[in-house]
Design a binder for these strands. Structure first.
Lengths: 343, 343
DNA sequence: TTTAGCACTCTATAAAGGAGAGTGCTAACA
DNA sequence: TGTTAGCACTCTCCTTTATAGAGTGCTAAA
């Protein structure tokens, strides 16, 4: 079966109307709302063909058609025109993000809120991967008796605090000495490198000053722990509740459950091989829980290096055009802003 | 109408059974499940009395009774025995919190997760109020060209990072000088005091070193901004979905909506006048959205000073006994642990 | 190739008819 | 006087039945 121009128009009409109304679309509706210049009967014939091709399906015999996953896929790949954002929306993003970036943590929050507000979907934003950014510097500051505050700065600007126990009789000078050693050894190295071999080197260097060994070991542990390194920030979780496909609480629970599994979220967002926009429709997500959802993600780069990613999650019946353009605009904006931030 | 011993037992039976089953409770059920030694008919008479007193009500004529808000109130005040936690549960709390407190931020997370797991309700934990804790020390560290990292440590151990812009030609020594001044002026003072008058003093002191004025001003701004000072951490939001009273998405939306309003959450949790356990049932919460919910909060103290609070939110039909004991045990544990932490 | 007409299918909604649970009242009983 | 058994009554919930409406597929005509 060939995909001629009119079939495309019919498919597009079905997708657009279904996205807008969440109701199965009948031939009559299409003839009325979309000006194809043919009668419902003709459209019915085309629809039968489209169904044979697996692009649309019928919930039951006497209902209209809804797009199948392949139908959405075809729409996204071939029919969809990326809606460019209105000036108002662009301004909205720019005034809210571009001018306010100060700390990495809060800008991730901001991003997720913006994206969810603009799309009415749930936004997922991965914090810039701390693990991959090399050490920049380590400071050890006095904190409380027998405790020190370790401030770790990565080259990407991320800052981490850790409180560590130190012996009662560790002096300010001891701290100074340890941090000097750490700085000289760690600077410019990624976590992986530190883990893989450098650790023993530092260890032996410090061995000269026996008292400090245990401190140094404990001290490195939290930074190296890969568990805390990156996390996913959600925005507009409740937008899910507005989707008619989740008016049943049981279905809702399934989807919302994955929002509490940090691990799963990370896997969903972790940049796939190719950079740029990725659309995963329904079953294309390997996760059981979101078979009825689509996930749109995009990565952003600085100097060609992938930093992190932004995504939206919603029902397969989502406004792909809008969602794609928001996510894409967001990531390019972020790329630019962060570049400026680092220079 | 008098509240005799048997009426109390009947009311207690109704509350307990309704909490367990979420179904209106009939006289027959009470006679069967609870050993009151009287027939259903007698219980029916008592129930009619309890209804006259406004403690229970009927959804419709041929249904059993459910506790009214006043009924719950009477139960909580007079009938409820605080269930003491099992050793297993205590151990669970202690191994998970008591031994792992390191950083204030993460322990709040931990607390909320524990409480929600133990109660199957939604936990709310207020971060220890930063605003009220006096300055302990300020460090200014080099960060990036023309940016510095300011690390503020409060006396309660809270650590805050702020990235601030500094002039291109600010030297390491300048930073040192500013931080010395700030430390000497701010140490031991609360934000309120700083705001109310000290600001100008610091300003004039720094005026001698003109270049640093603008830096110092900008530097203080983020710490003083009351907006970021405390926040509420939620745990087990999705437990709401398991409650039969929220199987309707519309009702659910109402409740979940307030979880996105940070402002409202804070107000709910902000310690009321009296310290200790507070139970607010249904309409006793002034918030429109949670008329069908009850909120249990408790504060914890260190050396008699109220630090912060922990709460749970759930439908009015909640296991008050369990919830109260978990919240109370949690706050006393936290009080002890934090005391140890500071000493 | 397109279209009008029509019989057919299926859902969603309303109406109708029990079954079941629970009550309130009355009268008997200890 | 307090308690209990019995019974008529009420109301919800579930199932069944009927009906209207939307949409299709097929056929035959344009």
């Amino acid at each position: 079966m060939q995909m001629d121009e009119r079939k495309k128009k019919v498919l597009q009409a079905i997708v657009l109307d279904y996205i807008a109304t969440a109701e199965p679309v009948g031939s009559r509706t299409i003839a009325r709302k979309f000006d194809l210049g043919v009668s419902p009967a003709t459209i019915r014939n085309e629809m039968a063909d489209l169904e044979d091709m697996g692009l649309i399906e019928q919930p039951h015999t006497s209902a209209g058609r809804i797009p199948s996953n392949s139908g959405y896929r075809f729409y996204v790949d071939c029919l969809m025109k990326m809606a460019s954002l209105t000036d108002k929306e662009k301004l909205f993003i720019e005034t809210n993000v571009v001018h306010k970036i100060r700390e990495l943590e809060s800008f991730v929050q901001q991003t997720s809120r913006l994206v969810s507000q603009l799309t009415n979907l749930t936004a997922l934003v991965l914090t810039p991967v701390k693990a991959n950014s090399p050490f920049h510097q380590v400071h050890l500051l006095p904190y409380q008796p027998s405790k020190a505050l370790m401030v770790v700065v990565k080259e990407n600007g991320a800052v981490e605090n850790h409180v560590i126990d130190i012996g009662e009789n560790t002096t300010q000078e001891d701290l100074q000495r340890v941090s000097t050693i750490l700085n000289s050894k760690l600077k410019g190295l990624t976590m992986e490198k530190v883990k893989s071999g450098l650790l023993s080197e530092i260890y032996s260097e410090l061995a000269r000053q026996k008292d400090l060994i245990s401190m140094a070991m404990e001290l490195l542990e939290p930074i190296l722990d890969p568990h805390e390194q990156d996390k996913v920030v959600l925005g507009g979780t409740l937008n899910m509740l507005n989707q008619p496909e989740f008016k049943d609480v049981e279905k809702l629970k399934n989807v919302l459950r994955i929002f509490e599994e940090d691990h799963t979220l990370k896997k969903m967002l972790t940049p796939s091989s190719e950079p740029g926009l990725t659309v995963r429709i329904g079953g294309e997500n390997n996760l059981e829980e979101i078979q009825d959802c689509s996930l749109i993600t995009a990565t952003y780069q600085i100097d060609g290096q992938t930093i992190s990613s932004v995504g939206v999650l919603g029902p397969t019946r989502m406004d792909y055009s809008k969602a794609c353009s928001v996510v894409e605009f967001m990531t390019t904006s972020l790329g630019e802003v962060l570049k400026r931030y680092y220079k």
